[in-house]
């Protein structure tokens, strides 16, 4: 126990925990909008698509710089989103197949670049591998500062435009009618999603970051019908998952952080599914009998 307390009081751990709370909260918050827009899986594709971006930046500049990685990740993430929409628009391919095509091809190409890096550059690729599943234990203070700052900006932006985002998702026609630039707010939301994916991949990894956008809001949905409360609750669920997952990961011996955070969120989802006050299975069963 004292060992555990010792570990908790170390400055690095505290930074990592702080980062995971803010990241979890921000992704839960954004996730609520994404869920209502029915774009959950686009977030997944975007996350997978960041891998080639990160690798390409490393090949071009041959330095391990987190800000540069994030720029590369954002570029390919946005490109993937654009391609998904372009394929649907210009051919008979449906959205789900289009997402699958873009996701798997981008990720496959990312793996190609990753192996190219291993074989052709002097530097080892450790640090790049962590982008696949996330490794909180390997992060240093400056990484956390990027995550915390990025998440904080995302939280503030979505709080500022909360009403506008809400109207343009729920009723785009009405929003246009009262003069809101709906396409601008769609763009802002897309930017926020790219932002959270990009700052989150270091901690959660590209394969599972989408879960942080999908699971918390889905769990929150079982407790309330109001978007404001749902977004806040979803943020809290994300934050709790972040902390608990990171704690287990850093305390355990090299357990991957991302999957643990996701599992925590899944457990909360399961509890909500059963016991949720609004639409939980038990409440439903009681009502129908």
């Amino acid at each position: 126990m004292s060992e555990f307390l010792n570990f908790l009081s170390s400055a690095n751990t505290q930074w990592v925990l702080l980062g995971s709370i803010i990241l979890g909260f921000a992704s839960g918050l954004i996730g609520s909008f994404v869920l209502l827009k029915k774009q959950s899986l686009i977030g997944d594709a975007m996350a997978h698509a960041t891998l080639p971006g990160v690798c390409a930046v490393y090949i071009i500049f041959n330095v391990k710089s987190i800000p540069l990685f994030l720029v590369g990740a954002a570029c390919t993430g946005l490109l993937a989103t654009y391609l998904i929409q372009a394929i649907v628009k210009h051919s008979r391919i449906k959205t789900d197949a289009s997402i699958g095509v873009v996701l798997s091809v981008f990720f496959g190409f990312g793996i190609v670049l990753l192996t190219y890096i291993t074989k052709n550059t002097k530097g080892n690729r450790s640090g790049l591998d962590e982008f696949i599943f996330g490794q909180a234990a390997a992060m240093v203070k400056s990484d956390i500062q990027v995550i915390a700052l990025g998440s904080l900006i995302i939280i503030i932006v979505s709080a500022l435009f909360f009403k506008e985002l809400k109207i343009s998702i729920f009723d785009p026609q009405y929003a246009k009618g009262i003069g809101l630039p709906v396409s601008l707010f769609n763009l802002i939301l897309m930017g926020l999603v790219v932002g959270i994916v990009v700052v989150g991949i270091q901690m959660v990894g590209v394969v599972l970051i989408a879960a942080l956008l999908i699971t918390p809001p889905l769990a929150a949905r079982y407790w309330t019908d109001r978007l404001g409360r749902m977004a806040f609750l979803s943020g809290c669920i994300g934050g709790i998952s972040g902390v608990v997952g990171t704690l287990i990961s850093t305390a355990g011996d090299g357990l991957p952080t991302g999957p643990l955070i996701v599992l925590c969120a899944s457990v909360i989802f399961l509890v909500s599914l059963l016991f949720g006050a609004r639409k939980g299975l038990i409440i439903k069963a009681v009502r129908t009998t």
């Binding site: 989408a210 879960a211 899944s266």
Partner: peptide, 16 residues
């Protein structure tokens, strides 16, 4: 789509 997302990420995370 959200149902697919939550199921596969949970089971995959458990596997990892």
């Amino acid at each position: 789509d959200a149902a697919i997302g939550v199921v596969f990420t949970s089971l995959f995370a458990l596997g990892v």
